[in-house]
Simulated scan of single mutants.
Amino acid sequence: MPFFLLIFFLLLIGYAVLIGYYHNAWNKLPVYTPPEDAPTASVTVIIPARNEETNLPVLIDSLRQQEYPTGLFEVIIIDDHSTDDTFRLLDEASKSWSSLKVIRMADLPADENASTAFKKKAIQAGISQASGQLIVTSDADCVFDKKWLHTIASYYQHTDAKFIAAPVVIEGKDNLLNIFQSLDFLTLQGITGASVFKRAHSMCNGANLAYEKSAFEEVNGFEKIDHLPSGDDMFLMHKIFTRYPEKVFYCKSKTAIVRTAPVDSWKAFFQQRIRWASKADSYDDKRIFWALLLVYLANLGFLILFIMGFWKPLAFFFCIILLLAKMLIEFPFVNSVAIFFGQQRRMKYFLVLQPLHILYTIIAGWLGKFGHYEWKGRKVSKR
């Protein structure tokens, strides 16, 4: 046990340094306040949708309320082989709103990677018909501040960015599942903002992204990553970062925040997180791989130490002490992110949910590497 404790202690030191780095970077990342002057950039919002009939009315209403110059933005929603009333609702909405275009993937020629890279193919189809110089992507279960596009576009013009990652928050009722998702997602958002600001590694979320159409075309879009079932966001980000390392930004602005709904079951939550974890060994950006590996091993150490306690009771003592140390390392960072997103009321649950978070990290990471997941009624295997 002494040798294991030494290794585990060194891992926790490395983890503490990593979290401290993210915390410092997040706090130094300036908050952007958009000017009142209307942006002049033309924007195309692209949203893939599969079986989203319950979310579409709220989504479309939120998009129609955008305070952006008429004629400078359009919305393209792509029906990704839905089996519900998604296409019918979209078709009806497009007849009453001229800025909305609808693409039906079932009407397009099949692609050799269409059976795996579903979302990438939908986004690619949208971009092929986009007229805007700035592509903004989101998901069908999201809602937006009225100044969302105004903020993103003005930030684009302010920075001359080629790629912009922007904030996303999970909102829902205060039950255990929703609180757990929200806290986990706040951590990911903090790491995203910090890593993009410091250009430490490529990280973003497809629910709130923007990039120049010309930059997308210059890196040949999803070429060479179009066989992968996930990663329409981070893989593309790294391709553009490789070409324009000084032109990738995180827009830390309250009016840029996209609000998304939590998944409604623990099974769906794990499937979502396994899907995210499945990308880890495909990253060209190996900097994030090593960060993820450190996080995984640090969490795995707690499980090993806990199991060892059944043979060596002293291990339980060390497990508790080191768990408290881990919480003290993480809490200030996550709390600072929660304050920005207005989610600090949920931080009171942070400590008690730590054991569950450790277990979930281990399971999702393992199955992301060796298992399979289901998403939107589709089953994808890693093997």
Rank of each mutant, 00 (worst) to 15 (best):
I274K: 15
F249K: 05
K267H: 15
Y250S: 07
T242Y: 01
A261K: 15
V263T: 14
A256I: 10
C251Q: 04
S265T: 15
A280N: 13
P262Q: 11
F241H: 01
A261C: 09
S282K: 15
F270M: 10
P262E: 07
P245R: 09
T255D: 07
I274R: 14
D281A: 07
M234S: 09
P245E: 03
W276D: 11
S265E: 15
V258M: 07
Q271Y: 03
A280Q: 10
R275A: 11
R259E: 07
A256F: 12
T242P: 01
A268T: 04
F249Y: 09
Y244Q: 03
V248R: 02
K239W: 01
F249A: 03
I240R: 01
Y283N: 09
F270V: 12
F249N: 03
S282N: 13
C251F: 03
K267M: 02
L236M: 08
K279H: 12
A280E: 06
K254Y: 08
R273M: 11
I274W: 04
F249D: 04
H238S: 04
Q272C: 11
A280P: 13
D281M: 15
M234Y: 07
K252Y: 08
Q271F: 04
E246T: 04
D233N: 09
R243S: 05
R243W: 02
K247W: 04
S253M: 08
F249L: 00
M237T: 02
D232T: 04
R243E: 06
F270I: 07
K247A: 07
R259T: 12
T260F: 05
Y244F: 13
D233V: 05
T260A: 06
R275K: 15
Q271A: 09
K252L: 05
R275T: 11
I274P: 04
R259V: 06
C251E: 03
D264Y: 11
I274H: 12
S265F: 09
I257M: 00
F241Y: 05
D281T: 15
F241E: 03
Y283G: 03
E246F: 06
K279M: 15
V248N: 05
K267L: 06
I240V: 02
S278L: 00
W266F: 11
P262H: 14
K254E: 11
M234C: 09
I240K: 01
T255A: 00
R275S: 11
T242W: 00
R243F: 05
K254D: 04
S282Y: 15
W266D: 07
K247M: 06
F269W: 09
W266K: 04
S265M: 13
V248F: 11
R259Y: 14
A277S: 12
V263F: 07
V258I: 05
R275Y: 05
F270W: 08
